[in-house]
């Protein structure tokens, strides 16, 4: 016997529709688009077996690229912060300088930044500044703006209105309001989300090897191109270690500032 659980209306209809769609997708992916004969042939398992034995001799050569990756992610997060500040200013409803117009502009910039994948950004910047670390860093920075600016704008919208009013009352310009009324209140939240983004940027920077950005990404793509799966596994292990350490540091750092 089922007892009085409130269910939203049409829930079962939605559930059924979702399940049917899932079955349709599963059929397309698993039956129509997959060559099971090849899968069963043993080739995937042989490859997997090669992945399963990471080439540890490579690790010593990966320390330098690892440092480069950290540097790139850090620089990109800095640059993202610098770019995000004005966007957050535009996109925060309570301080946006030119009313609805600049607010919509700010919010659109955030959406554009987030809706383009870091890889597409990277390809775009390669065509503007050539290959190397620079397009990679720019891509990560621009990609970070969306998240950073949005969380910052939200933090700005949540600030206590008292100090802002006081500065306005004293005849302060919008810029002074920003500098003295808002920045001190939101600084910890800002630093917190930059650290969070830094963590993600380490992860993202691994695919920038594609645009020749150096670091672990380049090492990874090099091993991949040579089909040296043991080497790929070694690079991934180093990435994993880096992320674990990064998670530890960012956790500590965020707790320290908040």
């Amino acid at each position: 016997m089922s007892v009085g659980q409130r269910t939203p209306r049409y829930a079962s209809v939605w559930l059924l529709a979702g399940l049917m769609a899932f079955a349709f997708c599963a059929h397309d992916i698993l039956v129509r688009d997959t060559d099971w004969a090849r899968m069963m042939s043993g080739h995937p398992w042989e490859t997997l077996a090669r992945f399963a034995r990471p080439d540890f001799t490579l690790i010593a050569d990966l320390l330098e690229p690892a440092l480069e990756t950290v540097l790139m992610a850090t620089l990109a997060s800095f640059a993202g912060l610098v770019l995000a500040l004005p966007v957050a200013w535009l996109g925060a409803a309570n301080i946006t300088p030119f009313g609805q117009l600049s607010f919509v502009l700010g919010r659109s910039l955030m959406t554009v930044s987030r809706s383009v994948h870091e890889m597409v950004w990277a390809l775009l910047f390669v065509s503007a500044v050539g290959l190397g670390a620079l397009p990679g860093i720019l891509a990560l920075a621009v990609r970070s703006v969306g998240f950073l600016a949005r969380t910052m704008a939200e933090a700005i919208e949540d600030v206590a209105p008292g100090p802002i009013e006081a500065i306005r009352a004293a005849g302060g310009s919008p810029f002074k309001v920003l500098l003295f009324g808002i920045v001190p209140q939101v600084l910890p939240a800002f630093i917190g989300c930059v650290i969070f983004e830094w963590d993600i940027n380490i992860r993202r920077s691994t695919i920038l090897g594609l645009v020749g950005a150096g670091g672990l990404g380049l090492a990874l793509f090099r091993q991949m191109a040579r089909a040296d799966y043991a080497g790929v596994a070694a690079v991934i292990l180093v990435v994993l270690a880096l992320i674990l350490v990064g998670e530890l540091i960012s956790d500590r750092a965020r707790r320290a500032v908040i």
């Binding site: 397309d28 992916i29 698993l30 688009d33 997959t34 060559d35 090849r38 899968m39 995937p44 490859t47 997997l48 992945f51 890889m119 992860r203 993202r204 691994t206 695919i207 990874l220 991949m224 089909a227 799966y229 790929v232 991934i236 990435v239 994993l240 992320i243 674990l244 998670e247």
Partner: peptide, 28 residues
């Protein structure tokens, strides 16, 4: 959880394509 997060989704795609071949299965 940390392990799958550490590897970027594009890297997963590359690895899985090399394992199960081109197509939607690797992507999925």
């Amino acid at each position: 959880i940390i392990g799958v997060r550490a590897v970027h989704e594009m890297i997963w795609a590359i690895i899985l394509v090399s394992l199960v071949g081109f197509g939607m299965l690797a992507g999925s």
